[in-house]
Nucleic acid binder design. Structure first.
Lengths: 108, 108
DNA sequence: CTGTCGTACTTCATCTGTCGTAGTATTGTG
DNA sequence: CACAATACTACGACAGATGAAGTACGACAG
């Protein structure tokens, strides 16, 4: 279990990662984050959906509504070129962040 | 230069680290963070001082006013046993956070 | 055929932490 | 004496996370 403040700066990055290999939608992304992190991080629903809104507003993802076969309404998201660029920036930033924080961590 | 959102969850931890080897005060801590991070992270004054208030409220640091020789008023802070325990928790959490975030980072 | 669970969201109000702006006061330096 | 550096404090704004609650559909058990 990771406290949210810690990972706060990477929620958007995590979501973008989930869209790297194709479109997906909220519930699926949520489950996948949980699975990938081996239950160590569970993004709250409201956090997830407000992140979608922010990411779309910034042009990092685009959405399309699929009011599918059986009536299940889902909003699918895709990463945009800008989103990909942003994701890569964040990956680079993450390396630096690790180096910096490590200086303030005393290994047990 | 690291964006604040990224390191947000570790400001308190960074400050506590600075107090591990003895008391210190705001301005000095600020300078030391900057130096230790090799200018990669500069904590804003307001962020620093509001962190002091929070840490003290939580019992992680204690303060003492030294209205020193020449009139320089400084507030010195010391880490408490609770603060030390909290710091160690955060160090452990940091290891897990790194593992988790790394799963969502695609190395260049 | 009814209740409950899982899916798939949305809305709203609140809280925490950061940050910009600004101001105060003292000490050291050219 | 002006100005930078030191050492804070106060205040208001804002972004992002969160809790609580609600909507709506399908599947499945009893």
């Amino acid at each position: 279990m990771i406290s949210s403040d810690v990972i706060r700066g990477y929620n958007d990055t995590i979501i973008l990662y989930m869209l790297l290999d194709g479109e997906s939608y909220g519930y699926e992304i949520s489950k996948n984050i949980r699975r990938l992190s081996e239950d160590k991080y569970v993004m709250k629903e409201t956090t997830l959906y407000s992140a979608f809104a922010r990411l779309e507003k910034n042009g990092y993802i685009s959405s399309l509504h699929k009011d599918g076969e059986t009536g299940k309404r889902r909003t699918y998201y895709r990463i945009t070129p800008d989103g990909l660029a942003y994701y890569r920036d964040k990956c680079r930033e993450w390396q630096i962040t690790q180096e910096v924080v490590d200086k303030f961590i005393k290994e047990a």
